[in-house]
Simulated assay, not measured.
Amino acid sequence: MSHLLGMAIESLVAVLLMLTIGYCWLLNKRLQRLKADEHSLKAVIAELITATEIAERAIGGLKHTVRDVNENLGNQIDAAAAMSMQLKGQLAEGDNVVRRLSKIALAARPAEPAPAPTPAPAPAPRVSGARAVAAAAEAFTERRRASGLAA
């Protein structure tokens, strides 16, 4: 019986050793996959660091460009404001000259007697649109010439 008990214990130890070897083999496979994932993760991290550095340089360049554009735009706004003030002054001076010329023209014009009232025209027969516009333009021109405003 002791011999049988020894064989049972030895068999149990052999089975446990086989299970241990199988488990170690499974752990070895998982560790290999983990190492492979670690290498690919390191490559991804290196690429991410490179992309971050490129982005930081690009942001620095954009900040520099914005600063230059801001200075340039500020100078252009100042120049535009100065030109606007200059144009405003020139417009005011031109307005003044036009007023003075109109006063001179009014003073140089001879006084005319008031025009005699004209009788109301008889109703015109129906005329086409183009002829009506032409007739109205002629009447307007005659009135302007009569008052001395047309050249």
Score class of each variant (00 low, 15 high):
Ser2Val: 05
Lys42Gln: 12
Asp37Met: 13
Leu19Ile: 08
Leu16Val: 14
Gly148Thr: 08
Val44Met: 01
Ala51Thr: 03
Thr20Met: 06
Ile9Arg: 09
Leu12Thr: 12
Ser40Gly: 07
Gln76Ile: 01
Ala120Thr: 13
Ser2Cys: 02
Glu10Asp: 11
Ile59Trp: 11
Ala111His: 08
Gly22Thr: 13
Ala136Met: 05
Phe140Arg: 15
Arg67Tyr: 14
Leu48Pro: 08
Tyr23Phe: 11
Arg126Ser: 07
Ala151Gln: 05
Ile54Ser: 12
Pro125Asp: 05
Ser11Ala: 13
Ile21Asp: 02
Ala55Cys: 09
Leu27Gly: 10
Ile104Ala: 11
Ser40Phe: 02
Lys29Leu: 02
Gly60Val: 14
Gly6Tyr: 06
Asn75Trp: 01
Asp95Cys: 07
Ile21Ala: 09
Ser128Leu: 01
Pro117Ser: 00
Ser40Ala: 02
Gly60Ala: 12
Ser2Pro: 02
Ala136Gly: 00
Ala132Met: 05
Met18Val: 12
Glu112Ser: 12
Trp25Ser: 15
Leu31Lys: 15
Thr50Ala: 10
Ile21Val: 07
Gln90Thr: 03
Pro121Trp: 10
Val69Gln: 14
Thr65Phe: 10
Glu71Lys: 11
Arg30Trp: 03
Arg67Val: 10
Ile45Leu: 13
Pro123Leu: 00
Ala135His: 04
Ala111Tyr: 06
Asn72Trp: 05
His39Gln: 15
Val69Cys: 09
Glu142Pro: 00
Trp25Phe: 09
Gln32Leu: 04
His64Ala: 15
Glu138Thr: 03
Leu31Gly: 09
Glu53Asn: 05
Thr52Ser: 11
His39Gly: 06
Ala150Tyr: 13
Lys63Pro: 03
Leu26Phe: 13
Ser147Asn: 13
Val97Cys: 00
Val44Pro: 06
Asp78Ile: 00
Ile49Ala: 05
Gly60Met: 08
Arg57Thr: 12
Gln90Lys: 05
Gly148Asn: 11
Gly148Ser: 07
Val44Asn: 06
Ile49Asn: 02
Leu31Trp: 15
Leu4Gly: 00
Tyr23Val: 02
Glu10Ile: 01
Pro121Arg: 13
Met7Trp: 14
Pro123Gly: 01
Asp37Gln: 12
Ser128Gln: 04
Met83His: 03
Arg100Trp: 10
Gly61His: 14
Phe140Met: 04
Asn72Met: 10
Ala14Asp: 10
Ala51Tyr: 06
Ser128Pro: 12
Glu38Gly: 09
Ala111Phe: 04
Leu16Thr: 14
Ser128Lys: 08
Ser2Arg: 11
Lys42Ala: 10
Gly89Leu: 00
Lys103Asp: 05
His39Ala: 07
Arg145Gln: 02
